[in-house]
Design a protein around this nucleic acid. Structure first.
Length: 447
RNA sequence: GUGGCCGUAGCUCAAUCGGUUAGAGCACCGGAUUGUGGUUCCGGGGGUUGCGGGUUCAAUUCCCGUCGGUCACCCCA
């Protein structure tokens, strides 16, 4: 037995590859709809690119090693550092705002679990050079429109959105010392998954008084700007951020995706680098992990690339998304590519004729298959060959009756012989450049 | 890195209390038949029961280890 694929890595057989291609093609199509352009970087990077942002402890979660030149390198676990380097290097020359996307394969050395492997494909969309909330609305609408294009609607998923600036203003209003904010973030992040008394205990340990603790624990129940305004609107510091969030919501409404938006102060997105609006897309049934996450990180390019530009972006992986689409029956139409036409010769059809026809069709971009065995071509009865064509998934069969006649037989679906038509092959063989071959086939294919 | 559960054919599963040659469906390959349609019928290839060790007259079955899968924690994309 040859070695299997490594733990957490996937073999993509045609059926699985078709799903992967469907997902990635949809990502590309929608990103381009928003005038984003595609880029890529190296899958292998200097280890330092990741440790300078996240510290040495991240090394335990990376595929890293020393190359033959003695360099410490790592398979990329995320795209943002590469992106930041690329943008920073040409920051002066790039037209702003930059709207770029990429579909890198990313690697992470972690024990696999539901929705998380050691390798995945992730759409990254980033906008650089614009601090207005219009950019934030644009970004989230891309993620939502992608999910809509996969056939998901509000009953399948929604966006949970918070804002670091708003949350910080709230914490400040509650007189919580900035030193405790990180601890509060950690509690909010787990508010749903952790018993309430455990959360309360952690907040108390962080130094919050009873009133502040209750307020923070109550954040989970606030799911709208109006509710937040009612509770904290008297604070001018908070109101500034509430107004901006309301404007953001209005933009999303006008972009046609307002129904997916839900304010949720428990969305934290890690503890690092985000500085403004942050969001995650969740399936509405709560069965899966977040299918997408992102937000604004206005200081990251400064930290990674030495260029001070406001930025925002999101990542969407193929694993959880694929699980969700499968669970909701949105992959039923995704099939492996098959032949357009299957050639079935009669006993008297010369192989050279068959091949000439195949050539003409293929040069017209029609995919053609036939048995790759002279024995089968001539020994198998046409009925058996049609069965072969059917099983192979061909859309049409071109059945030669004798040396001069052939028929186009529709195989796809449950259709009968409605689309069957008889052709005169003499024209093909004497003048293969004419449309005599192509027209009936292309018509039957609907081209 | 920690813990729970699970490893039988390509896939889904079966095999009495530990008992004789580990079976079935699907899939695949060949054939018959439908002289041109997914049917039906016959046949075939496929397994070191994940791997290693132990207990036993006898292990797919019980025990230990290991590898793999899966789920959760940690952490995060």
């Amino acid at each position: 037995m040859p070695p299997k694929a490594l733990p957490g890595f996937r073999d993509f057989y045609p059926a699985e590859y078709a799903v992967r291609a469907h997902i990635i093609e949809t990502w590309r199509r929608i990103a381009r709809r928003y005038a984003c352009t595609e880029y890529d970087g190296p899958p292998l990077e200097p280890l330092e690119l990741y440790t300078q942002k996240s510290g040495d402890e991240i090394v335990g979660q990376l595929y890293n090693f020393e190359d033959k030149g003695g360099r410490a390198v790592a398979m990329r676990p995320e795209m943002t550092p590469t992106f930041a380097r690329m943008v920073a290097a040409r920051a002066q020359a790039l037209r702003k705002p930059v709207r770029w996307f990429s579909v890198p394969q990313l690697f992470r050395y972690e024990r696999q679990q539901k929705g998380r492997l050691r390798e995945h494909f992730q759409l990254n969309v980033d906008i650089v050079g614009e601090s207005d909330v219009l950019a934030d609305a644009e970004l989230l609408s891309i993620a939502i429109e992608i999910c809509r294009d996969f056939g998901l609607d509000r009953s399948d998923f929604y966006a949970r959105v918070s804002d670091r600036r708003l949350l910080n203003a709230l914490l400040g209003h509650l007189k919580i010392h900035p030193d405790a904010w990180a601890a509060v973030y950690a509690v909010l992040d787990k508010l749903e998954r952790q018993p309430r008394d455990v959360s309360a205990q952690k907040l108390e340990t962080a130094g919050l008084d009873a009133a502040a603790r209750d307020a923070v624990l109550g954040f989970g129940a606030i799911d709208s700007v109006d509710a937040l305004r009612a509770a904290f609107g008297e604070s001018a510091d908070v109101r500034v951020h509430l107004d901006r969030f309301a404007e953001y919501a209005n933009h999303l409404q006008a972009l046609g995706v307002g129904e997916f938006l839900r304010l949720d102060l428990t969305i934290v997105r890690g503890l690092a680098y985000y500085t403004g609006i942050v969001f995650e897309l969740f399936d509405a049934h709560g069965e899966f992990r977040a299918i997408c996450g992102g937000g604004r990180y206005d200081n990251l390019l400064q930290a990674l690339g030495g260029v001070d530009l406001p930025s925002l972006g999101f990542g969407m992986g193929d694993v959880v998304l694929g699980e969700l689409l499968k669970a909701r029956g949105k992959l039923a139409e995704v099939g492996t590519p098959v032949a357009d036409v299957w050639l079935v010769p009669s006993e008297s059809t010369a192989i050279a004729h068959l091949l000439a026809v195949a050539s003409v069709l293929r040069r017209a971009d029609v995919s053609v298959e036939y048995p790759l065995s002279a024995e089968k071509l001539h020994a198998r009865k046409s009925g058996a060959q049609l069965k072969d064509a059917q099983k192979a998934g061909a859309r049409l069969a071109l059945v030669f009756r004798d040396d001069t006649l052939a028929e186009v037989v529709a195989l796809a679906g449950a259709s009968t012989d409605a689309e069957r038509s008889v052709l005169d092959t003499a024209d093909w063989l004497t003048a293969v450049n004419t449309s005599a071959v192509l027209a009936p086939v292309l018509t039957a294919l609907g081209r």
